[in-house]
């Protein structure tokens, strides 16, 4: 079977660019399709989030099919929050037959932080066990020890939070994910390149591609909010000041400039293997971020 084009990009040694879309709450998929069309030719892969923040939405597998239909390269985000091991395996088999070749394995946010706070959180597997499961299915077996009639092949990845505090338990899990077969890692948002460079000094010892997470900042307020409320995010003061100093109506452009500058620096300094750009609700400006970074596909 031909490798996924995302995997080819990872293995080519080029600086890989991915971005992501969030499916809608409802059946109006037009905005999502618009975002797919905007991104599909300028990035190496598009992640589709899986009920992000435990908010019930159109499924990630549906978003990935839409990307395939429109000629893009999907990266299926799969969390362990909503499906047991039987459903996860079944979805992997289905995804493969529909041409979805890349999977990002996540534990998933806790149920009570989302919009169905009384639902049952499944967590039959965790992210490292899901990675092992993918490798098992590829070997022609399922988790029950049964033979598969036709087995899938995926480019499987996971995430890490380089700014986690304390970092040591996070790194132990990171190493387990690599051991379990993660080929690529998309990081939680990073903003402090010195801290990230230190993380990369450690991460370089492993045979895994690291893509730095870039979350677009749209205002100083958002940056402060993330510092106070989002686990593992550290926006340095100088970036908050830069956003705060933007003239009225210009904060978004400043955020685009900051994101573009970070992508450029990461690439020029060869700090990591690529970036994963998350524009959360502002997917229209991803091309502007890439332009600000001087990247053209």
């Amino acid at each position: 079977m031909a490798k996924s084009s995302f995997k080819e990009a990872l293995e080519s040694g080029k600086f890989v660019i991915t971005s992501e879309i969030g499916p809608p709450k409802g059946t109006n998929i037009e905005p999502m399709l618009h975002h797919i069309d905007l991104l599909k030719d300028i990035v190496d892969g598009i992640n589709v989030t899986d009920h992000q923040s435990s908010v019930m939405r159109f499924p990630s597998i549906g978003g990935c099919l839409a990307i395939k239909e429109r000629g893009g390269e999907p990266i299926l985000q799969m969390t362990c929050r909503d499906r047991n091991r039987m459903a996860l395996q079944a979805d992997l088999l289905y995804a493969y037959t529909r041409g979805i070749r890349n999977v990002l394995c996540l534990t998933g946010d806790a149920v009570p932080v989302g919009d169905h706070p009384t639902a049952k959180g499944v967590f039959d597997l965790d992210s490292s066990q899901l990675l092992q499961t993918i490798r098992l299915l590829e070997s022609g077996k399922d988790m029950g020890g049964n033979d598969l009639n036709g087995s899938p092949e995926f480019c499987a990845g996971a995430i890490v939070t380089p700014e986690a505090n304390p970092i040591e338990p996070q790194l132990a899990k990171f190493e387990k994910k690599i051991e379990a077969g993660a080929e690529f890692i998309q990081t939680q948002a990073i903003y402090d390149l010195e801290n990230f460079a230190k993380f990369m000094e450690y991460a370089r010892q492993f045979n895994v591609k690291i893509m730095a997470g870039i979350v677009l900042l749209v205002s100083a307020r958002m940056a402060k909010f993330m510092n106070n409320n989002v686990p593992g995010i550290f926006v340095p003061d100088h970036l908050i000041d830069e956003l705060a100093a933007a003239p009225k109506g210009e904060a978004l452009n400043t955020g685009i400039r900051i994101a573009g500058r970070m992508v450029k620096q990461l690439k020029e300094q060869n700090l990591c293997d690529g970036v994963h750009i998350m524009a959360i609700g502002k997917e229209e400006v991803v091309p502007d971020i890439l332009a600000a970074a001087g990247i053209q596909k």
Partner: peptide
């Protein structure tokens, strides 16, 4: 909160739980 056995999720912050 999630009954994980292989290490923390990404929701841990300053030694506390995301929930």
């Amino acid at each position: 909160h999630k009954g994980l056995v292989n290490g923390p999720c990404g929701g841990t912050s300053n030694g506390k739980c995301e929930v």
